[in-house]
Design a binder for these strands. Structure first.
Lengths: 140, 140
DNA sequence: CAGAATCCACCAGGATACTG
DNA sequence: CAGTATCCTGGTGGATTCTG
């Protein structure tokens, strides 16, 4: 049984974290950047289903919230690199925890999510795509 | 500097976790239930801004995803109690991590969030409300 | 006290096309 | 390669009202 270490307030910390982390691709983006995937085109490739526009929007929000930094190289063709700020890095354990929990409970989650009538097919099969991609990377 | 322990896939675990945790009040609800706040009326009181309907909807989703269990006592007035499932409990470290990160970076987050033009006043002041409530609880 | 039924506003996010 | 401008729609979550 899980035992909480410190008694906490109702929602305040959660509220702040959610405010900053809410956005379909934000956790994935932070994760990607932490894995040295720092250029927009790379992220775009690794996040099938995400649009340029949406990625830009969310990256700008992350930047505005002080989680990532953007470096623009004034050259042709343009080059942009994102990196995590100190605050951004401090969030990584949380991201990792989410990632690991999702992986650890994959079978259960896939079942309940797949049964969920609200989830559309795209979302349902998203994980399969990611897994396939991971497999491809191993082969390649 | 934060060092990742295990190299991870791009998004799969994150994807699953987000699917299950997305919803304005879900983390707070899980947190509340873990703190033995298990009756709808209590949650309603502790989550100012949340509606009965929305709470019901999100609780039903959490239930459908196997994170919480609902026990209905067939009596008058009706009594309902929620509790975490095993899977739900396994998620608590993640919730705690989010909560603690938000608390730890409160000043920074409040600043950037308050400056964010997209955030409405309600959201901006939410944390103040929670803090006030926490203070009140200490006094009471 | 718990909850279902409506109705609705808003915005996140996707599609598309265009510029430097 | 990177970014922006429009346009559009689906869903989330809020307000209100009504039942057991």
């Amino acid at each position: 049984m899980y035992e909480r270490k410190t008694p906490l307030t109702i929602d305040c910390g959660l509220h702040l974290t959610r405010e900053v982390l809410s956005g379909k691709w934000k956790p994935a983006l932070l994760n990607a950047i932490s894995m040295d995937i720092k250029r927009p085109s790379e992220m775009l490739r690794l996040l099938p289903g995400a649009t340029r526009r949406v990625l830009n929007v969310q990256l700008r929000e992350l930047e505005g919230h002080g989680l990532v930094e953007k470096k623009t190289y004034p050259q042709l063709p343009p080059k942009v690199e994102y990196s995590l700020t100190e605050v951004g890095w401090s969030l990584m354990p949380v991201i990792d925890a989410m990632n690991q929990w999702g992986d650890a409970n994959r079978s259960h989650l896939e079942t309940v999510i797949t049964q969920d009538p609200k989830i559309n097919e795209t979302s349902k099969s998203a994980c399969k795509i990611y897994r396939q991609m991971a497999a491809d990377r191993k082969i390649g």
